[in-house]
């Protein structure tokens, strides 16, 4: 368990860092997907199979592919290698983050007594509970999201349809 957790988290951290740092957009997307897969593995370790499956289905299968599609439609896949971001900002950011960590987060973490959670051997099938929750208490929220997505889809179609040629263009 610990071994699997450490391997997966190391992969997740490294691939997330690479996704931010890599210059080539496609490489960045691919490492981002590796991060998503590692995250799904962590979900499986937490016995949340459904969440892991959805993580892969939505993020790797749909979001990642969408990003790749968008990249393929752009002109320049690789950023200018010679161009560098001014490094001073990063130093200031590091200093600020360290200050926040030392002054706010660490005392808070040390003060809080974490309640001991009971060890869970097995978790009841979570999909049924999830479905029941989606269908009864959160039904309206689900409908609203569905409506929003449908509207977004229709909007995308409207944008994608090429506008009809105006009278002047037809004449010329």
């Amino acid at each position: 368990m610990i071994i699997a957790f450490s391997i997966l988290s190391v992969i997740a951290v490294i691939s997330a860092l690479l996704a931010v740092r890599l210059r080539n957009l496609v490489h960045a997307t691919l490492t981002l997907m590796a991060f998503f897969v590692a995250l799904a593995g962590l979900f499986i370790l937490l016995m949340a199979e459904f969440l892991a499956a959805v993580q892969i289905l939505v993020y790797v299968g749909a979001v990642g592919i969408l990003i790749l599609f968008a990249i393929m439609l752009t002109q320049q896949v690789t950023g200018n290698v010679k161009e560098h971001i001014e490094a001073h900002g990063a130093l200031w950011g590091l200093a600020g983050a360290t200050a926040v960590l030392l002054t706010l987060l660490l005392p808070a973490i040390l003060k809080t007594a974490l309640p001991l959670q009971p060890v869970v051997e097995t978790i009841d099938p979570s999909v049924r509970a999830l479905g029941l929750n989606l269908m009864s208490p959160y039904a309206i929220a689900l409908q609203v999201i569905a409506l929003l997505l449908t509207a977004a889809l229709l909007g995308a179609v409207v944008i994608a349809i090429s506008p009809e040629k105006s009278e002047e263009e037809k004449k010329s």
Binding site: L30, M33, E49, A53
Partner: peptide, 22 residues
């Protein structure tokens, strides 16, 4: 024998799209 067999199948199956793109 996983509880969410079918959805796991579709989820992992969707990774193959990525491989073809790669």
């Amino acid at each position: 024998a996983v509880d969410t067999g079918v959805i796991l199948f579709f989820a992992l199956g969707s990774v193959s799209t990525l491989a073809v793109f790669m």
